[in-house]
Nucleic acid binder design. Structure first.
Length: 498
RNA sequence: GCCCCAUUCGUCUAGAGGCCUAGGACGCAGCCCUCUCAAGGCUGAAACAGGAGUUCGAAUCUCCUAUGGGGUACCA
């Protein structure tokens, strides 16, 4: 091990909206770099032109920034090791592929995909494991020259050892070894001149001076290939950490944006980072949640800040086992974070949410409603369901139907009487704060010989049109005397024919 | 098929040979509080995949089996 500064990278492919599992990989790499006082960089691996999706870079950058994972170098952050987009580094890969050929570590392969298919078909018929038969590995220099003179397209394949074992070490998994006779002469440079991931990431990691790599465990099978490439190149290999995968909540299969998953309550599991943002999850809660999968803070502490995580995080403490995605825990955590925020701060976050819902996002009103909603919402968006009525045009409020106003074990006559009596009491009210209102209505309930819940429930529905809402008297206080009475009168009108 | 990895409450996890009659959290159940819904408080049910070893002693080490996951592309 050297004393060079720790450098980690997040290297996604620009293939569309960013996946939440991907974001977690980024979290671990970022956390480790920060923990070591090193650098974290973003590199775009776009060596597969076919899979490129327009706008992906913006998705990736947006997701990283949203969560607070600032990178020291990247496509839009200049650094001394750029460019940070692989398609802009093509000559480098081609040069080193040639170097490998020149040094007898790799070879040109002219086999067509048709032949490859044929080979596999035959192998299958003989019940042999599939794979390339190394047909071009033994081509003579003259044969190669002849094929090239014909203008035949070719790929470059790695010349893998035929026997023995390839040994490697992983920070999380420990020592691993692979029998070489099961390995393939993988393609490292495609016929279009683009490198495959295998070659490209190694060259980049080397020249970008990456000291520790983090990637999903799905890469484990190609680890021996990579080890051999590093060795062939004669470069010092960074330390590798293969991170556990996130599985669907039921533990069946890895979380994927192509296959939708559902949790126990039948809710669709959100996959894209953008979906989490839109659903009203907080970045700090999401960070906490993601960091808690496969790693934990210790001391039985579930809730921790980013700085606390940086302080403690170490790749070697990561649990090697794959994890079912514990979605339901995010709701709880997000609720915790919402409650921990200063009401003014929360209100600031809520204003745009109200606006986005197409409602009147008056900051002052949001500020008044926030404290009474704070313990009742788990995501920002739930604010709309609970308290959206405050932000609709009051003049357009329509009284709820009579049967909604009538509470348990009440009838039309009794309900109407309650509402009328309430209006009378309200008109006489001098102070209009919720504590005083509570007291007067408690007295009124006794006077009318109904239960608190029966009276208060009718009031709630009359005021909000909802059976679940912010507390009734706090709601009255926010509405003020005039609006409160107006709504109750509208409710009484629902009983006109009684 | 072959290769690789993993396996502690339903789930995320703590646990690196005696501290474990296995700890925390989510979820769940019950109770308290209570104007709805939450929040909060308290209580409870709930796990070392199985089998062989090693050892005075194993959730912790070894092997086998089972199960789950991943890979097996001129995708990453």
């Amino acid at each position: 091990m050297s004393d060079k500064p720790v450098r980690t990278r997040f290297a996604p492919s620009p293939t569309g909206p960013m996946h939440i599992g991907n974001l977690r990989q980024a979290v671990f790499g970022w956390l480790y770099a920060k923990h070591c006082g090193g650098q974290f960089l973003l590199r775009i691996e776009d060596t597969d032109q076919k899979r490129y999706v327009e706008g992906s870079l913006e998705y990736i950058i947006g997701a990283l920034r949203w969560l607070g994972l600032e990178y020291d170098e990247g496509p839009d952050v200049d650094g001394p090791y750029g460019p940070y987009i692989q398609s802009e580094r093509l000559p480098l890969y081609q040069e080193w592929a040639q170097w490998l050929i020149d040094n007898d570590k790799a070879y040109k392969c002219f086999c067509t995909s048709e032949r490859l298919e044929q080979v596999n078909k035959e192998k299958k018929a003989r019940k042999e494991p599939p794979g390339y038969d190394r047909h071009c590995r033994t081509l003579t220099a003259d044969e190669v020259a002849a094929k090239q003179a014909e203008g035949l397209p070719y790929v470059v394949r790695m010349k893998m050892p035929l026997d023995g074992v390839t040994k490697g070490h992983d920070i999380i998994l420990g020592d691993v070894e692979f029998p070489n006779d099961t390995l393939q002469d993988a393609v490292i440079l495609k016929s279009d001149g683009f490198p495959t991931y295998h070659l490209a990431h190694i060259i980049d990691d080397h020249f970008m001076e990456i000291t520790h790599t983090t990637r999903g465990q799905e890469w484990m099978p190609s680890f021996p290939l990579h080890i051999n490439i590093w060795q062939a190149l004669g470069w010092e290999m960074p330390q590798h950490a293969h991170l556990p995968l996130i599985l669907n909540p039921n533990g069946q299969g890895k979380l994927s944006k192509r296959k939708e998953a559902f949790d126990e309550s039948g809710q669709r599991v959100l996959i894209k980072v953008s979906e989490y943002i839109e659903a009203g999850y907080l970045p700090d809660a999401t960070f906490n949640f993601l960091a808690n999968i496969g790693w934990n803070f210790g001391e039985d502490k579930e809730i921790f800040t980013v700085d606390e995580a940086i302080e403690r995080f170490d790749l070697k403490d990561v649990n090697p086992a794959n994890a079912a995605f514990p979605v339901e825990k995010l709701d709880w955590l997000n609720g915790q974070y919402i409650r921990d925020k200063a009401p003014e701060t929360l209100a600031g976050l809520l204003v745009p949410v109200v606006a986005k819902a197409g409602l009147n996002a008056d900051p002052e009103l949001v500020g008044k409603v926030t404290p009474v909603a704070q313990t009742r919402i788990k995501t920002l968006n739930e604010f709309i369901d609970l308290a959206g009525f405050f932000f609709r045009d009051w003049a357009e409020f329509e009284a709820p139907p009579a049967d909604m106003l009538i509470q348990k074990k009440m009838d039309t006559v009794g309900t109407k009487r309650c509402l009328e009596a309430s209006i009378t009491v309200l008109q006489a009210a001098e102070t209009f704060d919720h504590a005083a209102l509570y007291k007067t209505f408690k007295d009124l309930a006794q006077e009318l010989d109904v239960k608190n819940g029966q009276l208060f429930g009718a009031l709630r529905v009359a005021l909000t049109g909802q059976t679940i809402s912010t507390p009734t008297f706090e709601t009255m206080e926010i509405f003020g005397k005039d609006e409160t009475i107006r709504r109750l009168e509208m409710a009484v009108a629902q009983f006109a024919d009684v």
